[in-house]
C-alpha cells in the first residue's frame, strides 16, 4: 500500500494544518518518553499533562487535515503512515529529551512560541483553526508558565543547575531560530490569511524569553545561525528513530482496529 503517495497533498492549507499537527504530536511523543522516569512524582505528572494536551491537540489538527484530504483518510493514517520526509514539525520538537534542563529549555522556547502562534491562529481566516486555537491557547499559557518557572528555578537554583540550564538554552537557541524563518508552508498559510507571519513573532518572543532569562539570572538569548529544515521535511537523524518506534506496531498490522 502506498499511504505516502495517497496522502501527499498539494493543498497549502492542509500542509499548514499538518505542520501544526506534527509539531504537537512529535513534541508530545518526546514528553511521553519521560512518563515514569521524572525526577519527582509531581513533575512526572506535570510533564505528562503537557504531553496529553499536545497529543490531544495533534488529534484535533489531524482530524481536520483528514477531513480536508477526504477519501477515507483518518487521523491515524496521518500520524502512523507518513514517512519522515512528509513530516513538517520544527526540528526543535524532535530533539532528544536529554536531561531535565534540556527538556525544559526545549519546552520553554516552544511554549513561548506556541502561545504567540496560537494568538495568531485565533485570528485565522479559517474558522476551524480559530476554534482549535481558542481552546489550545488556555492550555498553552499554563505550559508556558510551567516551563518558564522551571527556567527560573534552574537558573537561580544551584550553581550546577545554573550551568546546566545555561548550556541547554544555548544549545537549543539555533533550533528556536527556525520558528521565525518563513518556509513555503508559512508563506502560503500567511497568504491565505490562515496563519500568522512567523518572522513578525520573533521580537515579542525574544522580549518574553529575555524577561524570563533575566529573572533566572541567565544571559539574554542569542538565536545564532539557524538550524532549520523541519518545516520542509528535512529533519535531524533523530526523527527517523522517533517515527520507527512510534509507528512500528501500527505499520506491522495495517488495516486493523485497535
Amino acid at each position: 500500500m502506498t499511504f505516502q503517495m495517497k496522502w501527499d497533498t498539494c493543498d497549502p492549507k492542509t500542509d499548514y494544518v499538518l505542520h501544526l499537527a506534527d509539531d504537537a504530536l512529535i513534541l508530545g511523543q518526546r514528553l511521553a518518553e519521560w512518563c515514569g522516569h521524572g525526577p519527582i512524582l509531581e513533575q512526572d505528572i506535570a510533564l505528562t499533562n503537557i504531553s496529553l494536551d499536545l497529543i490531544g491537540l495533534a488529534r484535533q489538527y489531524y482530524q481536520y487535515a483528514a477531513e480536508l484530504i477526504g477519501d477515507g483518510c483518518t487521523e491515524n493514517d496521518l500520524a502512523y503512515h507518513r514517512d519522515s520526509r512528509a513530516f513538517k514539525n520544527h526540528l526543535i520538537s524532535e530533539q532528544p529529551n536529554g536531561h531535565w534542563g534540556d527538556t525544559l529549555a526545549r519546552q520553554f522556547y516552544f511554549d513561548t512560541f506556541h502561545f504567540y502562534q496560537l494568538e495568531g491562529l485565533a485570528q485565522s481566516s479559517d474558522e476551524r483553526l480559530r476554534q482549535i486555537a481558542a481552546k489550545a491557547i488556555k492550555e498553552t499559557s499554563y505550559h508556558a508558565q510551567y516551563s518558564a518557572e522551571w527556567i527560573i528555578r534552574l537558573g537561580d537554583g544551584t550553581e550546577e543547575s545554573h550551568e546546566k540550564i545555561d548550556k541547554s538554552l544555548k544549545k537549543l537557541a539555533p533550533f528556536a531560530h527556525e520558528f521565525f524563518i518563513e518556509s513555503e508552508v508559512d508563506t502560503a498559510a500567511q497568504a491565505l490569511g490562515v496563519g500568522p507571519k512567523v518572522s513578525d513573532l520573533c521580537e515579542i518572543w525574544t522580549e518574553k524569553v529575555n524577561s524570563i532569562l533575566k529573572m533566572a539570572t541567565l544571559e539574554p538569548v542569542d538565536l545564532g545561525f539557524p538550524k532549520k529544515g523541519g518545516k520542509a521535511g528535512l529533519h535531524s537523524e533523530h526523527h527517523g528513530y522517533l517515527l520507527a518506534e512510534m509507528q512500528s506496531l501500527a505499520r506491522a498490522h495495517p488495516g486493523v482496529t485497535w
Partner: peptide, 9 residues
C-alpha cells in the same frame, strides 16, 4: 538523575 533538579528546586 533527578537529584540536581530536586536540589535546584
Amino acid at each position: 538523575e533527578g537529584a540536581w533538579v530536586r536540589d535546584a528546586a
